[in-house]
Design a protein around this nucleic acid. Sequence first.
DNA 1: TATTGTTATACTCTATAACTATA
DNA 2: TATAGTTATAGAGTATAACAATA
Lengths: 158, 158
Amino acid sequence: MSRPPAKQRPAPLDRGLLPSLLGYVLRRAQSAVFDDFAATFAAAGEATTPGEFGLLVLVDRNAGLSQMTLARALGIDRSTLVPILDRLQGRGLLVRRRSPTDGRTHALALTPQGAKALARYARLVRRHEQRIAARLSAAEIRTLIDLLERVHRGARSR
Amino acid sequence: MSRPPAKQRPAPLDRGLLPSLLGYVLRRAQSAVFDDFAATFAAAGEATTPGEFGLLVLVDRNAGLSQMTLARALGIDRSTLVPILDRLQGRGLLVRRRSPTDGRTHALALTPQGAKALARYARLVRRHEQRIAARLSAAEIRTLIDLLERVHRGARSR
DNA sequence: TATTGTTATACTCTATAACTATA
DNA sequence: TATAGTTATAGAGTATAACAATA
């Protein structure tokens, strides 16, 4: 029963009530999933965040939408969106076109290169999803998504 | 069956595959829960984040721990922790004491004021938890926490 | 007047690299 | 040499306020 050298037993900290708090467990799971997303993309030589991926999907599925519409869908301020679009546009993934009907707005759209990148990202996301759900059955994944949506609705309504 | 004025039907965007992605649903739930946390605290005239609350609990339950130990437990770099502790110390909630056994480390501890604040925060967190779980039974909450922990472990192991 | 996109500004969270005191 | 805490610095995400162009 000899123990290995063990330079310094880390001695896990007492977390008190934290592990029983839904908010805490949710936050930690989210953080681990974010790390896995980044690692999956990095392993494929890509550098794109979950937020950027979601944005690209929205632009792809709703071509021509305005920045205000997109910002509302993302739940961020319109000024926050500007540098994000600047970066994506700088990477050649999307363009801001003039709207023909309203001179104040931009019509956003993916470039052909952006559409190709999105298809690549979608494959990586599928791989990432398989990893994070590896310990769950298909039924459990559905249950989890359902419970999370109910938490979302409960938290939103105040 | 006349519709109310409705200045501009927002026409919900097409989110494509996003709602079927665990990572996406998780991120949205987390964001809504964070907002609810902030709103609950703001309504009570308090301004403390989930991260700060978690940190205070760890210091409370593990008095005398070092900044490195705390940083590891939080999953952040030691340099990231410095301004966070500066702020909490500035608010009079915790202190950095000299460690008597190792001159390189600080022994962190809550002040009496910090302990009182933490008790106040814990009551608010309980209220917040009731809100976000309002649509879930006790059994469902347990299931959700269990599933999230399994996602956490699955995402971590690579 | 109201809306859209932009800019200026500020704050927080995050990290890496380099410095210092101590072990 | 190695570790702990700090500082300098930088990047991303977030916001508010004010401005120009357009409706």
